[in-house]
Design a protein around this nucleic acid. Structure first.
Lengths: 263, 263
DNA sequence: TGCTAAATCTCGAAC
DNA sequence: GTTCGAGGTTTAGCA
């Protein structure tokens, strides 16, 4: 066992003790958790005021700050990574100010009571992998183009056109060009319009016959009508199915690898 | 002083102690903070795997869960409010599973070491107010239409048209119809296209002369060209200025109120 | 409930 | 640096 002590905790510290503790921790690039009664002022891209209440404040080693109320997924106030901190005890209040430039903004958090104060150096090199993202769907279609339709042949992907990027670009069995727009969930009006934009652009640079296909698990209400009006098509495809196919393709590669290595 | 003890803390608890403590806390609808070495599996709209590492886990009283790595604003895994929890100690691992229906998904967090475990009942009724949002800009223009231009008269706002909602809709001093699209920050190509969409629609239902004005603090590069090509206009307006005007209008109302109350 | 658009969106990649 | 688009986006508002 290691005798590393990654977390140091104070319960109900005075405002002065808390300020010292936080300064020390931040100077060592540790993360800090603060629980107590506080109020918050934010000025920057917008401005906000949060009246007093009991909250959880998290300061991370990269200089990001989160103020969490006891409910809800989102922090009520925050600041992204890269902040500089000023911590002080002024009379009965502990004040932590996090500021950054570009955009210039700052969050001032004031406590009149701290229930819990912890500092910690956390070691986290664990890999994070997410499956069934839009790019997984794209890769699955490139790996197995019949997911789109029999006879489809991809030419390129993430192809730059004037208005943006075409997800997948290819030729169908009849030799017609196909522009494919992929969405990982129910596709709305915006997806149809985005595809139309790309198709219209490609029309200006080619005289070949051209199809536009929107790939998504399903369409929002009214979007099929819009697609039809725009002369576009819809192909239903589940992101999970794509993730499965990719997983299988990885397995195949592994099998391949071992067959080569151990003949 | 109150003798309420809102926070209870354990340092380096065993897996069994931790499981008991968490079950107890969640049954009382308390919030829980866990710091330790953990790995996470998520299955639901997508699926993800997070390899072991030291992280901060927050479970709130409304059943939301956040897994935070020691860096970055965003949680690496999470679950929104309304989850049900299963907590267990299995051999050397503490397992917390948060699941919900609609969409059906679950996050499984497994710890093999807990550094810090706290439960807390936080009281937070503080009011939160945010200024300088897009709707503040809209309200400011409705309150003082000369922010757009002298002689502008709003007719309606959030008006539904086929492609979406027109932010503000009015008449200029020459009697021409004006469609206004508001952005609270640098407006990009998409904002210009959105405005064009609305203007084009309104053109199909009226024969009156029609202007489209994009209101934003500034334009992204190349967007002025696009606007000109589309026959649209740009009016620079700072969200802060709008917030100030709204604040002043609130003050005016207060002044009004007191003058009526105390003649 | 479903859909639309905003957000102090954040984050990453590409130019 | 700016711009663009994805996100397990979340959240709020409205039909």
């Amino acid at each position: 066992m290691s005798n590393r002590k990654p977390v140091i905790t104070l319960e109900n510290p005075t405002v002065e003790k808390a300020a010292e503790f936080i300064k020390e921790a931040l100077s060592k690039r540790k993360a800090v958790i603060l629980v107590g009664n506080c109020w918050v002022d934010y000025k920057g891209r917008a401005s906000s005021k949060l009246e007093p209440g009991e909250r959880i404040v998290m300061i991370k080693e990269d200089g990001s700050v989160l103020v969490h109320r006891p409910f809800g997924y989102e922090p009520v106030n925050w600041q992204p990574a890269g902040c500089l901190f000023q911590t002080s005890a002024r009379g009965e209040t502990l004040q932590v100010r996090a500021s950054r430039k570009n955009p210039s903004e700052s969050v001032k958090i004031s406590f009149d009571k701290v229930f819990l104060l912890s500092s910690m150096s956390l070691i986290d090199r664990g890999e994070f992998s997410l499956h069934a993202s839009e790019s997984d769907m794209q890769r699955a279609i490139l790996f197995d183009p019949s997911l789109l339709e029999e006879g489809f042949k991809p030419i390129s992907y993430e192809k730059k056109v004037e208005p943006g990027f075409v997800d997948v670009y290819g030729v169908d069995r009849e030799g017609r060009l196909v522009v494919v727009e992929i969405k990982r969930r129910t596709a709305g009006r915006d997806a149809a319009l985005q595809l139309a934009k790309y198709v219209n652009f490609v029309k200006t640079v080619t005289h070949r016959e051209l199809r536009g296909v929107l790939v998504a698990p399903r369409l929002a209400k009214g979007v099929q009508t819009l697609l039809t009006r725009l002369g576009l098509e819809f192909k239903s495809l589940e992101p999970k199915k794509c993730a499965d196919i990719l997983r299988r393709s990885e397995t195949l590669k592994l099998v391949d690898f071992f067959e080569k290595k151990q003949p």
